[in-house]
């Protein structure tokens, strides 16, 4: 009897995996969002969560909803996208940028920066503040992109809950901030709004790393904790896209557990800061990249 139960469990799991593949295919063909090369464990957890929240029995029922109900895809997209971020997340990364990257950016008359997968924008404002303090903001063009239009709306507003400001202030200081963090926002009731002049040179736009292509040549790409959701194939594709988008000598900053060394583009870069995952695209093809 117990063995039958186990057998049923196994079979149910296999069926579920088939349904998930079909579901992903359905949202790609119906809505254009391509999750086919995402890690599946995370997607499975999120879909099963949605399933139980709706009291449905199978992912096939979710598929029916996503194909036939106009608004349901918004919920699915929210379930499947990761929008957890914070100001100066990993302060040492920003300290690393300040030390290793900013001095070189200062030698350029004009710089372009791409935050890929910016979610609700906290890290975009973090770096904008850093650029201001280094006297670089006025000659910078910042592109902040994400595949989810809903989170971009939040990013554009630059309004965040006040309850995390204490943590953010501490992060700002650890990241090497030069002023008082409160110089950069106004607090109202339970929210803070970041200064409007921080937005002046930022363009927020939809861009999907899995399906869209190069849109600008940039000097620095910051893409943190996005690649961890992709399989090897998609990781390589996205790093190729970054490599094609960077100027010679341009910089790439990844998340603390992401590593360029295991991708096929490793030869195109030199390591600037191994711990903070900051890389520089080689200027020439000689072995020193100089």
């Amino acid at each position: 009897m117990i063995q039958n139960d186990e057998h049923d469990q196994n079979k149910a799991n296999l069926t579920q995996n088939i349904e998930i593949e079909l579901f992903i295919e359905a949202i790609f063909r119906c809505h254009g969002y391509d999750f086919r090369n995402y890690n599946k464990a995370h997607i499975k957890r999120r879909l099963l969560f949605r399933l139980s929240a709706l009291g449905l029995k199978s992912i096939s029922e979710l598929q029916h909803k996503v194909l036939h109900e106009a608004d349901f895809f918004d919920i699915v997209l929210k379930d499947l996208s990761i929008n957890v971020t914070e100001m100066y997340r990993d302060p040492s990364f920003y300290a690393g940028l300040r030390k290793e990257v900013v001095p070189l950016l200062k030698t350029y008359p004009f710089i372009k920066i791409w935050h890929a997968g910016c979610a609700t924008g906290e890290e975009v404002y973090s770096f904008a503040i850093l650029l201001k303090e280094e006297g670089l903001y006025d000659r910078a063009q910042i592109y902040a992109t994400d595949f989810n239009p809903l989170v971009l709306e939040t990013a554009k507003k630059g309004i965040y809950p006040i309850n995390r400001i204490k943590e953010y202030t501490s992060n700002y200081q650890m990241a090497g901030g030069l002023n008082s963090f409160s110089d950069y926002y106004f607090a109202r009731y339970d929210a803070v709004i970041f200064n409007q002049d921080l937005k002046k040179n930022i363009v927020f736009a939809e861009h999907n790393l899995a399906t869209d292509s190069v849109f600008a040549e940039v000097n620095l790409i910051i893409c943190r904790n996005v690649l961890i959701y992709f399989n090897k194939e998609l990781q390589n594709k996205v790093i190729r896209l970054f490599t094609d988008s960077l100027t010679k000598g341009g910089f790439l900053g990844l998340g603390s557990k992401e590593n360029l060394m295991f991708t096929e583009m490793v030869d195109q870069y030199v390591v600037i800061d191994a711990k903070e995952k900051i890389y520089k695209k080689k200027v020439s093809d000689n072995k020193y990249g100089l």
Partner: peptide
Amino acid sequence: LVEEDQTLSLSVEE
């Protein structure tokens, strides 16, 4: 997290 192909993956979700 553990993936179907018995590799490990990471997530920064909530």
